[in-house]
Design a protein around this nucleic acid. Structure first.
Length: 1011
RNA sequence: GCCCGGGUGGCGAAAUUGGUAUACGCGCAAGACUUAAAAUUUUGUUGCCGUAAGGCAGUGUGGGUUCGAUUCCCACCCCGGGCACCA
């Protein structure tokens, strides 16, 4: 895939691009000789050993849970990788290594996407055959990737330009053809005059070719098109779909009721106060869901207050309840809790009080599902949020709370929603009326509107200049010349000019033509204007200047009537005058390119039979070698010049026929490659069904955000199609998606040869080591955030690894004699062979009275177990920067203590192994292990070890920190308050003052409020 | 214009059931080691006032809720991204 970033931008507003002319690689400040850490030797050694031992090869092991980790495969350009590229690969590497150590069966493959314009243009520029250029570039990329120590299963490598691979790309196309999803269209398409090919809508950016920036032209051409619009609705809906989950609980309750309120606007939350004490009623649904309030649905005709009273009586049995107010200051805390549940919720929160405790019996079915408890005001929050009582049901819909089907960043989902651009509206026919009727036909014009409720305000109609009807009625137009001139003028404009919002609107009235508004039978003028687009909706609009800014602008300019009206009922209007219809902005995918370097479209044009697919047995249809692969510009690809290849017999009638000479777009091969990794060598099908079922879907997919509206939409489309024809088992290919934040140049601009700010990863690996590079890139900041590279800051990562390296000398172990007795306690050395010998080693911490004190050992244990927890959680969330920070803290602490047992050190190594695979492997063997650390078990933390027995208590006076003290954990509130009040630095602030209130948060703070 | 995301030291950034803001790293300053430098190491490092003890201010701005707000609410400013004469 092409690694193009869309915009050049700096990370932060405040930070102006610091233009440093010198961005070349600078010499490092580290010296590794002194401590014997030779990263080149170590990294090289382990990379070879891992390749030989095949520990990273994937297997469909049904006994294990699977984990499919995927990178967006690279598009090997001529320039090689820069340090920004590996960021995503390092992240998936960490994630897959982590999951492997957690006992999962891993698929972490890689391949190359190499068909398409970039490779072809590069080949033309360098005058090499694209096939050869691609081979060379792939080899270079592979080498660059290999030295990073990534755990790819290279035996599953795919390449989209390999005939064995694109056989299946062509096969999928044929299946689409069979289902009518691939068709030839003859319509205006985007044409790039520089690249001399048509483009899909997705390849056009602000009216320009996404590759070369040339403004695209509209050209009428016959093209292969894929009917992605048939899938528009599913592509949109599944973005918000929920994971299907079995849910059997049928017990009736508002929470589960089918007719429960589905719209949060019709829900009330009732806060119910005790009749004599400052306590609130907390409800417990027996499905472990605590609420601090009663939730009820407003039924038809009720006011929220009535609902509140009814719900509280029904659900709690307390009869004598009165409404105090609707969200007042007094209950602001509760209100905030409610809002937190759902930021979009606009619930009415009602505060009620009981006048007495009189209670009637509630029905058994209510008792079955819920309990009640009176909870003191200040404890309600803790009570509701108790960790062990996470709630599983959606508050508003009553459905089981489910995870979304797609765990994707909201921004990418939103991009796709925008791109698909669904809008619901109506098609309404306006009859046309013109005096000089040439025939009796009363023509009519279909308009598309999302506001049928404004139909009475339609005071004129506007057609796109290209609207076919204009030509039909041309003879009846009085100002024919003027109209034709306008149409000709509009044609000359580029898309960019035409769709410029700032441009003043222009248009011409079709004099002599009138339209009739079906709502009031009024005759209204008909105009043409280029602000109406031919290819959206119906190419015609009813103009309602009172309710549409564009129409208003136009009406003002041409003095057309603007009529304020009362809005009608939308559905009634649609019903009376038109039909409801859904339109999408998404266009069908223009699928042919007039270029050489792509998959040949496997179709034959027969004079008699028309379009005939190449028989499946003849696949792959291999891309033939060609003398000149320069684009022709005449709408044919260079393949058309190979008459021998082009002229074939029709597979059906054996008559004269020609091959299709257009090729597929760059995005074809990448639309399904993740499936091929599952079974890369299968010659019978694109992937074996069992294997597909085992590995699907991709558990984590990492790549650039710029693919949001292309690759990621195309792949979802193809996947859904393959699902429909039974080739794949699920409806979505990528379960979790994460986008990588770009690494910018040191000057804050995008890394590019053009700016001379490219940093080559090979240089970094050479001087600092792959492990250092990996740690640095993961430590830079949040993974999805764009950050500028800084060679100066790498030393931090390097120093950290060196600290770990030096720490091995402080690992203690017991030397055991042949009879099993402890001879002495020793440490490991940094040099090979040091510390070894005839004597066996044993854990130092088993030694009675050994060198490491119990206190220190316990202290290290506490640190380590906290670190295990933090690192484990952080890797799962892809919070690599904070995971590394936790590891640094652990190393610093252990270094300070100065001694560590072997088992403790090994935990540390394991935690770091996914991040720095080489150095940890080296040290792992150095302390006496015989099997790779990368297949060792991930450490588990012991919660009891994490518990602090001494805590720091902050003391505030009127909310300001005035002091602190250490105290045993879980000291009572009273004791804490007493100690706090006696602290000299606190006494100073509270003496001579009236203490009005003391707030004590156990294990945290004491706040003394004085007057 | 509509829709997402974000704004914290000199810099990259931590911190979410509302509870000691600035963890970790870079840089910088001072000390140790060294003939010297590098490397290493120790200490310090939000700003202002103060020799210090300490005080005041402080998480884009202005309000609000609260004993307590980076965190919740309201309004606004700025930055980044997506869509855009889409009817």
């Amino acid at each position: 895939m092409n690694k193009k970033a869309k915009k050049i931008a700096v990370v932060k507003s405040k930070q102006k691009p610091k233009v440093k002319p010198r961005v070349k690689f600078s010499k490092p400040k580290v010296k590794s000789k002194d401590i014997n850490y030779d990263h080149l030797k170590i990294e090289n050694k382990w990379q070879k050993k891992w390749a030989a031992s095949k520990i990273y090869n994937s297997k469909e092991d049904t006994k294990k849970e699977k984990c499919y980790v995927l990178d967006m495969f690279p598009y090997p350009s001529g320039e090689g990788l820069h340090v920004g590229h590996p960021k995503g690969y390092i992240a998936t590497d960490i994630f897959s290594r982590f999951n492997r150590m957690n006992g999962k069966s891993i698929l972490h493959p890689i391949g190359f996407d190499a068909f398409g314009l970039p490779a072809e243009n590069y080949a033309i520029k360098t005058k090499t055959n694209p096939e050869i250029a691609v081979k060379k570039n792939v080899a270079r990329y592979k080498k660059q990737l290999e030295i990073l120590g990534l755990d790819y299963d290279w035996s599953r490598e795919v390449n989209t330009t390999d005939a064995k691979y694109y056989k299946w790309t062509q096969w999928i196309f044929l299946q689409m053809l069979k289902k009518g999803l691939a068709y030839e269209s003859f319509e205006p398409v985007n044409w790039c005059p520089t690249d001399k090919t048509v483009l899909a809508n997705e390849d056009v950016e602000n009216g320009r070719c996404e590759r070369c920036g040339t403004p695209v032209e509209k050209k009428l051409m016959k093209q292969w098109v894929l009917k992605i619009t048939d899938y528009a609705d599913r592509l949109l809906k599944d973005l918000d779909a929920l994971e299907t989950k079995e849910f059997s609980n049928k017990i009736g309750s508002d929470a589960f009721r089918k007719d429960a309120p589905v719209n949060e606007r019709y829900v009330v939350h009732c806060l119910v106060k005790h009749w004599s004490e400052n306590k609130f009623l907390c409800m417990r649904w027996k499905k472990n869901d605590w609420r601090g309030y009663v939730v009820g649905g407003i039924e038809h005709g009720e006011t929220p207050i009535e609902t509140a009273l009814r719900e509280v009586r029904e659900e709690t049995g307390y009869k004598n309840v009165v409404v105090k107010k609707v969200v007042g200051n007094m209950v602001a805390q509760f209100y905030q809790e409610v809002k937190k549940e759902n930021r979009r919720a606009h619930v009415t929160t009602i505060y009620l009080e009981l006048t007495n405790g009189e209670q009637i019996d509630i029905p058994q079915h209510e008792k079955d599902i819920q309990d009640m408890e009176w909870v003191p005001y200040e404890n309600v929050r803790d009570f509701v949020n108790r960790e062990d009582l996470k709630y599983e049901w959606d508050l508003f819909t009553g459905a089981a709370k489910q995870k979304p089907l797609l765990d994707w960043p909201e921004s990418i989902k939103e991009s796709q929603r925008n791109w698909i651009g669904r809008s619901e509206g109506a098609e309404i026919d306006f009859r046309l009326n013109f005096p000089k009727k040439l025939d009796d036909n009363m023509h009519s014009v279909k308009v598309f509107t999302t506001r049928p409720d404004t139909i009475f305000g339609a005071t004129y109609m506007v057609l796109a200049p290209e609207h076919p009807l204009v030509q039909v009625v041309m003879e009846n137009i009085e100002n024919r010349n003027e109209v034709q001139e306008y149409i000709a003028g509009a044609k000359l404009e580029t898309e960019i000019e035409r769709t410029d919002v700032k441009k003043e609107k222009s248009g011409v009235e079709l004099k002599g033509i009138k339209a009739i508004n079906p709502a009031n039978n009024e005759e209204i003028p008909v105009w043409i204007s280029d602000y109406v687009l031919a290819d959206y909706g119906t190419g015609a609009v009813m103009a309602v200047p009172a309710h549409d800014t564009r129409d208003a602008e136009f009406a003002k300019k041409y003095n057309l009537p603007i009529r304020e009206i009362e809005l009608e009922n939308r559905d009634d209007m649609i019903h009376k005058y038109g039909r409801s219809i859904v339109k999408y902005k998404l266009r069908d995918w223009v699928f042919s390119r007039q270029r050489y370097w792509g998959e040949p479209i496997p179709v034959i044009h027969c004079e008699k039979c028309g379009v005939v697919p190449v028989p499946e047995k003849d696949l792959p249809l291999v891309l033939p070698r060609v003398k000149s692969y320069e684009p022709t510009g005449n709408g044919e690809s260079p393949l058309a010049a190979i008459t021998k290849w082009v002229n074939v017999k029709c597979p059906k009638c054996k008559g004269k026929a020609r091959r299709e000479t257009n090729t597929m777009p760059q995005w074809a091969g990448s639309s399904w490659y993740y499936l091929r990794y599952m079974d890369p060598k299968n010659s019978k099908q694109l992937a074996d069904a069992m294997k597909e079922k085992y590995w699907s879907p991709v558990d984590l997919y990492v790549g650039g955000a710029e693919h949001a509206t292309r690759h990621l939409i195309y792949a979802r489309f193809w996947h859904k199609f393959l699902f429909d024809i039974g080739v794949v088992s699920g409806t979505e290919p990528f379960k979790k998606l994460q986008h990588v934040g770009l690494i910018m140049g040191e000057d804050g601009r995008k890394m590019s040869k053009r700016f001379g700010n490219v940093v080559n990863p090979d240089d970094i690996v050479n001087t600092f080591g792959a492990d250092t590079l990996r740690i640095y890139e993961m430590f830079m900041g949040p993974f999805d955030q764009q950050i500028a590279w800084s060679t100066d800051s790498i030393v931090g990562a390097r120093r950290f690894i060196e600290k770990l390296w030096k720490l091995v000398a402080k690992v203690t172990y017991a030397v055991v004699t042949e009879t099993g007795e402890i001879d002495s306690v020793a440490t490991f050395g940094l040099n090979e062979g040091e510390g070894e010998g005839g004597a066996a080693r044993a854990e130092a911490d088993t030694v009675r009275g050994g060198t490491i004190s119990t206190v220190s050992a316990n202290h290290i244990n506490k640190i380590l177990h906290k670190t295990i927890k933090k690192v484990t959680e952080d890797i799962e969330l892809l919070h690599f920067n904070t995971a590394i920070s936790a590891l640094m803290i652990a190393v610093n602490e252990i270094e300070k203590i100065g001694s560590v047992t072997r088992s403790q050190y090994e935990i540390l190594l394991k935690l770091l192994a996914p991040f720095a695979p080489h150095v940890t492997e080296e040290l792992w063997y150095a302390v006496g292990n015989k099997k790779s650390i990368h297949i060792a078990d991930w450490p588990k933390f012991d919660p009891s070890l994490i518990v602090e027995n001494e805590v720091n208590i902050a003391v505030q006076v009127n909310g300001k920190i005035r002091g602190s003290f250490k105290a045993a954990a879980d000291l009572s509130k009273e004791e804490l308050e007493m100690i706090a009040k006696k602290l000299p630095e606190v006494v100073k602030w509270i003496q001579d003052k009236n203490i009005t209130k003391v707030i004590v948060v156990p294990n945290r703070l004491v706040n003394i409020v004085v007057l």
